[in-house]
Amino acid sequence: MPEAGHHAELTRRRMLQGAGVALTAAVGTAVLGLAGPTGTPAAAAGPGGHDTFDEVYRGRRIQGRPAASGHHHHGADYTVQVDGEELHVMRNADGTWISVVNHYQPHQTPLALARAAVVELQGATLVPIA
């Protein structure tokens, strides 16, 4: 796998071209690449300006990070967990994010998506997708 820096540059160039393209890897790094002059991440970018997140939200531990390997072939290359259980996520062509529990409602970042999942779960535990 090429260096993250290469990926970030590639990703930025592709996004600037405005194409609905494969965001192949290192989404979190791409966010840094997209940060504007003020340091504010562009809309619909990555997980809130950080490569990863790890926080407790309404009593649930939510974690997100770029997927380490290429086994995430479902349009994400990013992994999100709620209390250690994987939340299936997917990135839309415009850079927004959806998950299996908020499939029809795009969110701007994986962090916002993970928090929305916590609200949706109401304390329930994610189960592996059959």
């Binding site: 349009g75 299936h88 997917m90």
Partner: peptide, 21 residues
Amino acid sequence: VSTHNRFIVSDTDNGERTGHR
């Protein structure tokens, strides 16, 4: 239900897509 979800998770904007998007 299973069939629908199988396509939901496999239909991607830059990969094979059949049931959605």
